[in-house]
Amino acid sequence: MKFILIIFFTLLILSCQKTPVKTEIPKAVKKIEHSETEKDLTEESNLDCGGFFKKIVLSSNLTALKSYEDIFLRIEDISETKIVLEIYVKNTGSDSPTGTRITENTVAWLHFLPGEEKLLDITADPQNPVELSFDENILKKYNYRKICGLTEKDSQTKTVLKSSIECQEIKGVMMKGEECLIRNISLEDAYDEIIKKSLVTDAEFLLKKLPAGNYSQKIGKKGIVEITYRLSQNKIDIEMLYEGGITEIHLMKKDQNVKRQIIYNFD
Rank of each mutant, 00 (worst) to 15 (best):
I219L: 04
T151K: 13
G172V: 02
K90S: 11
Q217I: 15
I87D: 01
L12Q: 08
M1K: 14
E204M: 06
D135T: 05
D40S: 14
K118H: 00
K259F: 06
E86T: 04
I83T: 12
T23G: 11
V57H: 02
M175L: 11
E193L: 15
Q233M: 07
E69F: 09
D189E: 15
Q233I: 08
I194A: 09
I71G: 03
S35C: 05
K221S: 09
Y68W: 12
K66H: 05
L113E: 14
T100I: 14
T151M: 12
E152S: 08
S35F: 06
L210K: 04
K31I: 01
I195R: 09
G50K: 04
V84I: 13
C16D: 14
Y229W: 10
S164Q: 11
T37I: 12
N265G: 11
N143D: 15
T19D: 11
K254L: 01
Q168V: 00
S79L: 03
S45G: 03
G93K: 08
I102F: 02
R74K: 15
D125P: 00
G50I: 05
A64N: 02
T98N: 14
K162W: 03
K254M: 02
I6F: 07
I249F: 10
K162Q: 12
E188W: 11
D70N: 15
D95Q: 10
S79I: 07
I32V: 14
E248M: 11
V130D: 01
K66P: 00
K27M: 04
I182R: 07
E248V: 09
L41V: 00
D40M: 10
I87E: 00
E193V: 01
I238D: 03
E239Y: 09
C148F: 01
D70P: 01
L210R: 05
V21H: 13
K197V: 07
I122M: 03
T63N: 09
L206R: 11
L11S: 13
T228P: 09
